[in-house]
């Protein structure tokens, strides 16, 4: 029976492919395919069908490698998972319809056909979904790492002075990262003053303030001073309204003023050179 199905699929490859593309166009969501050019779609579709067939002909490992490659590709194209499963169902429908029409399957051996076909399709289905989700998860985790790298950079601007510009909302997880980066940076750059620039932080609530105070305390423990710069009028208002006490931290309105003050703390200053060249 397996051979019968395989032979049928092998010989009617072209027809199946055409039918499949036709049906997929009708059933699947419009926007899924508008992103792709028709040639691209046809190419990818034929690859998909090839892949299904290769499950018969090739060894387990080769098939697995091919499958992973294909999954990566469709994730990149942005095909949703439901289109992939729909594709599998459609393929199944087409093959079983075709074989019935050709009289290869009749009332007697229908049960056998269904069982055999399921044996083939189920593991395939699992494999495709597993490899699709794996690829997807990997993409997400890569993006998460990229986001984390951008999250809390410490920039040494002068000897003994470093700046950490913060942009975007601060949650507990990010605050932890900020604290770690801040302390490790202070130790490796041997900074004496660190400036936390919150110009790009939209809201400072009690929790954010708490995290900042903790970070400032920790910085003091490792032997440096912490300054909070870039406090906008709104932020100043909220801080006072919420009754947050930032007495122990030196604060300034802009990064520029902060740097000047930090230079003063380390007994240096910026002077203008008089002579002109």
């Amino acid at each position: 029976m397996r051979k019968l199905i395989f032979n049928y699929v092998q010989t009617h490859k072209g027809e199946i492919l055409n039918d499949w593309i036709e049906q997929m166009r009708q059933q699947a969501d419009e926007r899924t395919f508008t992103a792709m050019s028709p040639q691209m779609f046809t190419k990818t579709s034929s690859e998909f069908i090839e892949l299904l067939i290769s499950n018969f002909t090739e060894t387990e490992r080769e098939f697995q490698a091919k499958l992973t490659g294909f999954a990566e590709k469709i994730v990149k194209f942005g095909w949703p998972l439901n289109v992939v499963t729909l594709g599998l169902q459609t393929f199944r429908q087409i093959v079983s319809d075709g074989m019935r029409k050709d009289g290869l399957v009749d009332r007697d051996n229908f049960m056998e056909f269904v069982t055999e076909f399921d044996h083939w399709m189920f593991p395939l289905n699992d494999a495709i979904i597993a490899s699709y989700t794996n690829t997807w998860e990997r993409t997400v985790s890569l993006q998460k790492i990229a986001l984390q790298e951008l999250s809390a950079p410490l920039i040494p601007v002068f000897e003994k002075i470093s700046v950490m510009p913060l942009i975007g909302t601060i949650d507990t997880e990010r605050a932890k990262l900020i604290m770690e980066n801040l302390l490790n940076g202070v130790v490796t750059h041997r900074s004496e003053v660190v400036l936390i620039d919150i110009t790009g932080v939209p809201v400072v609530d009690t929790m954010v303030a708490h995290h900042i105070i903790q970070a400032a305390d920790a910085v003091r423990l490792v032997g440096a001073k912490c300054m909070l710069v870039g406090i906008r009028p709104e932020i100043a208002q909220t801080i006072v309204t919420l009754g947050i006490n930032l007495d122990q931290i030196v604060t300034t309105s802009t990064l520029k003023k902060g740097i000047e003050e930090a230079l003063e703390m380390t007994e240096r200053k910026i002077i203008e050179v008089e002579e002109k060249r």
Binding site: L183, V187, A218, V219, L221, V222, G223
Partner: peptide, 14 residues
């Protein structure tokens, strides 16, 4: 005067 507190220790203390 305490010197050379490591980042991890500072975090624990806080």
């Amino acid at each position: 005067m305490i010197t050379g507190i490591q980042p991890a220790v500072a975090i624990t203390l806080i």
